[in-house]
């Protein structure tokens, strides 16, 4: 536990090393995507001449796009791509002398980023709730927020296992960068980052429930907005845990086979 705390503290220091980067990313990713999405949906609401579409008003749509870009950072962290890079560089061997396994170390550093962006989301949501939309989310706003951030962290754990399974393919194939980008396309589009899933056709939603994507974006975002019942949140959390276990098993199998053929620096 002490070791975990040490690794996470070290990662926090790394995140804060380039402060200008942090503030530019913070402002850019939070507000630019929100402004563009809001402009688009404002146009859609005006074209339809209605104040509510599929259960969303322009106000709730704005809140959704305030949560989702930061939520995407909680989900995808910053460290994805590092395992494959180290495999290609041959520097992966350093984990042989670390006092914990590579997967434990990577997951910890990854979740530190997720936790950091979780705090970022708490701050932004608090400002929005208290300054721009006081009272509109009701008395449960903050309990929903913390529950939603918790679901996001669970989703991040599922994502890191899924991403690690793909990254370990680097033990066999020459470059997996494009596979990681494809994964992001799938998670963000089919998860509901670009358009809330309520706007997808019913047949598509029926298919998507058998994938992990809606549970990674739609579930936590709507939990924060207070749009889901406790039963649905619980069911979603159980599904996420199920996917995490499935990807964790895949990672173990891949690592078991892949390490036999690994050639690193000094090996």
């Amino acid at each position: 536990m002490k070791l975990w705390r040490f690794i996470m503290a070290m990662e926090f220091r790394k995140i804060l090393a380039y402060r200008s980067d942090f503030w530019i990313t913070f402002l850019g990713q939070t507000f630019i995507q929100l402004l563009i999405a809001r402009a688009l949906w404002q146009d859609v609401f005006e074209a339809r001449g209605e104040s509510t579409l599929n259960g969303f008003t322009l106000g709730t749509m704005t809140l959704y796009y305030l949560i989702v870009p930061v939520g995407s950072k909680i989900l995808t962290g910053e460290n994805v791509g590092f395992i494959s890079r180290e495999i290609y560089d041959g520097t992966f061997t350093r984990y042989l002398i670390y006092p914990l396994s590579f997967l434990e170390y990577k997951t910890l550093t990854y979740l530190t980023h997720s936790l950091f962006y979780g705090l970022h989301l708490v701050f932004i949501f608090t400002v929005y709730h208290l300054v721009f939309d006081p009272g509109a989310l009701g008395p449960a706003a903050f309990s929903n927020l913390f529950l939603g951030v918790g679901v996001y962290l669970l989703a991040a754990l599922a994502y890191v296992m899924m991403a690690t399974a793909i990254e370990l393919l680097a033990l066999w194939v020459e470059n997996i960068w494009s596979l990681m980008v494809m994964l992001r396309f799938f998670v963000f589009f089919f998860g509901g980052s670009f358009i809330p899933l309520d706007f997808f056709p019913a047949w598509a939603l029926g298919l998507l429930q058998y994938t992990p994507f809606p549970y990674m974006v739609n579930l936590p975002a709507k939990t924060i907005m207070g749009l889901l019942s406790p039963e649905k949140i619980l069911l979603g959390a159980v599904v996420l845990i199920g996917w995490t276990v499935a990807f964790r098993v895949t990672v173990s199998l891949l690592w078991k086979r892949g390490q036999l053929g690994y050639t690193g620096a000094g090996v």
Partner: peptide, 29 residues
């Protein structure tokens, strides 16, 4: 193989962009 993956990645990017507007136009003329 990397070349093939990259081509596939861009095709998926194109499809996602087309699908994005297809979904939007289900709700607005």
């Amino acid at each position: 193989l990397d070349l093939t993956f990259r081509i596939l990645m861009d095709i998926i990017y194109y499809l996602v962009n087309i699908l994005f507007f297809k979904v939007i136009y289900l709700h607005t003329p």
